[in-house]
Amino acid sequence: MTQWSGYLGLILQGALVTIELTLMGSVLALIMAFLAGMGRVSRFFIVRAIATAYIEFFRGTSIFVQLFWAYFVLPFAGLSLTPLQAGVLALGLNVGAYAAEVVRGAILSVGREQYEACTALNLGRWQGMRHVILPQALLVMLPTFGNNAIELLKATSVVSLISLADLTFQAQVVRSQTGSTLMPFLSVLIIYFALALIISWGVRTLERRMARGLDGVRV
């Protein structure tokens, strides 16, 4: 039993790496989502084209391939990344592309009259976006962002294959050291599930807080 506690410590270390990756990946994904999502509804053709190309490219090639490309091919171009950097980059750009479509959908879901009201109040495009459109769109995006964050959490397991010591990696280490299979994999599955539950609980709480005072506005 004392032996297990040592291995459990190893797995918990892995959990920390997974959490760190999920947080950093989410921040990058969020930035990319807003850049590309708002780029998709831009007035300028060239901005729309770049945003579309980014989204289609990262949604079209699998996360696994992107990660391997970032880790193994970029060094040949003179850009060496640590596993953690490659992981955050691939995860953030990949999930960001999916979330960008959410941002676009949410912005388009805001009613026409809101845009007309912005014009009537003589707000500039940016002012209208910042004070009228985005606060309403954000609430529409939140639940799907939560799902995207869970997808990102699940995708972090792939970084174990480029030798980053996350949960999945540590489970393999424990498996190869003890020969036991059920304990490491089951405990890792449970930790992932717990993290996913925490994310969905957090997003629900955030949604409730942000919806405060908007009762009359939401349809």
Partner: peptide, 11 residues
């Protein structure tokens, strides 16, 4: 649905 496919495959 809340756990990674990779770990399920290992399992």
């Amino acid at each position: 649905r809340g756990t990674p496919l990779l770990v399920q495959l290992y399992f």
